Computed example of a mutant assay.
Amino acid sequence: MNSIAYFPGHEPESAPVPEEQPRGPQLENGYVRISHEVMRALGRARLRGSEYPIVLFVIDETWGWHVKNKVMTTNYISEGLQIPKGKVSTAVAELIRRGILYRVGDSQGPIGFNKHHGQWKAKSSASKTVKRANPEWEMIHQNGERIVSQNGEQTVHQNGESNKDRKDRKDITPLSDQSDDEARADLESLFDEFWQAGLRKDGKKPAREKFIALLNKQSDPASFARRLVDDVRIRLDAAVPGFDKLHPKTYLNQQRWLDDVPERCPHAAILAAWNEEMPAHIEKISADDWTPESRGFQALASAWENFKTKPRASTGKPVFTEEQEGIEFYREVFRRLAKVDRVQGEDAFRWCRLSWAAQQQVTVQIFKGEVA
């Protein structure tokens, strides 16, 4: 028997239990397989600012989960990386332009990483050609050296050299000879492109002032201007209600380019499916009559977005995720509607209209065979 009694206060000290050391990140908790070739290509890609972490984030969210692409909103990426939404939006647009990332479908479609680095484009050089019009602001020369305009005419470098001092040096890239007048002309040209993007032609002078003020705050004015133009066209194409009547200055003041973009609904293709599948006595729809102001247009756009983005309770998945798949879904809905006995009647044209069938609840009822 090994039991030993000890007087109180005379018990032997127990050996300290060593604290478990943290193991750190483990492969068993998830990892991403990526080739050396791709990693080296990323190193040579000269990614700027937020672009590199965004590329890695996209790779982790896709390849890390054995999928090629995934729906990732600006907010999702911004929260995941703690990067402002504006910078995320600009960086993603540039990465897609360069072909490093790609998007499936429209502006809300899934994003993926393009591993074929031979298809990647060079980074934008627009920032080299656009100079801020205010002579007190600093600029970054294309060779990376910061320059400061002191009096609107003389440019002095950090090392104290002026343009005149550097004129005959052969070890550096010559500075741009762009004058302030030329710089203003560049900004005016960018504004003209924005003005023609499709917003309401009203309040041009205040819109120009606001636009140029915004560009003067950007490190890459031309890229930012291009982003605004693309954003306006995307929203007009998506038929955002009231967007075509929006004043340009209001768009700029409210920073509407940061708003989430609704799904683009392919109205023309769905109209064509309706006209082809419905009986001859049912009203055919012209694209000229199917305008964003009409209730049918708005109902179809809303239903399309819900069908494409919101999961069904029964399956946990959207009705469709690709544009062509959605067009075929609507075509099948119209085929089923055309077979309904009541639609075969000659007076069906009085009530059987696309503006009615486009309502989400009605579309679901037609698909389920609940319209008799």
Rank of each mutant, 00 (worst) to 15 (best):
K368V: 10
L47Q: 03
Y251D: 01
V71R: 13
G144H: 06
A348E: 08
L56A: 08
S14D: 07
Y31M: 10
D259T: 03
T363H: 02
S219W: 07
A91K: 04
L258F: 05
Q119H: 08
K70M: 14
P25V: 15
K368H: 12
S125Q: 06
V156S: 09
V130P: 01
D60G: 11
K128V: 03
K308G: 03
F320W: 07
F243G: 01
I96L: 04
I147Q: 03
R184I: 03
G9K: 04
D259Y: 02
Q365M: 12
A313R: 14
E94S: 07
L81D: 09
G86I: 05
Q255D: 12
Q158H: 13
A213G: 00
P318E: 06
L56W: 05
L236I: 05
G118T: 03
P16W: 10
A272N: 08
Y102I: 04
S176P: 06
F243A: 01
Q361G: 12
L175E: 11
Q150S: 13
K167A: 12
F320Y: 15
E263P: 08
E370H: 14
R40D: 04
S125L: 11
I77M: 11
Q178E: 14
I285W: 03
E161F: 11
K170M: 10
V148H: 15
G369Y: 15
M278D: 04
I59Y: 12
N163V: 12
R103K: 11
I59Q: 12
E323I: 14
T315D: 10
S127T: 13
I54F: 06
V71G: 00
F191Q: 02
E276I: 00
S78F: 00
Y330M: 09
R200P: 02
V148A: 14
H116D: 10
I100D: 08
S355P: 09
A239K: 03
E263S: 13
G80A: 15
R295E: 13
W257T: 00
H157Q: 10
L27N: 12
A313M: 14
E346F: 09
D289Q: 09
I270F: 07
S294H: 01
L175H: 11
K201T: 05
L236Y: 04
W304P: 04
R40A: 05
Q359S: 06
W290V: 12
F349R: 11
Q344Y: 05
V104F: 02
E209A: 06
V32W: 10
P25I: 13
D177M: 08
D260E: 15
G152C: 14
D260F: 13
D347C: 00
F334N: 07
K339Y: 06
D168Y: 11
K201G: 01
L27F: 15
S78G: 03
P53A: 13
S14Q: 09
P248F: 02
M139I: 15
E346I: 08
I282A: 00
P53E: 09
R336W: 04
D220G: 07
R264K: 13
E51H: 04
E182V: 02
V148Y: 13
C265E: 01
G109Q: 04
V104I: 09
D231A: 00
V156A: 13
D220F: 10
V130I: 14
I140P: 00
V261W: 01
G144D: 02
A357Y: 06
E13K: 12
V32N: 09
S35P: 04
P318T: 12
A348Y: 08
E283I: 06
P84H: 05
A222L: 00
K201F: 05
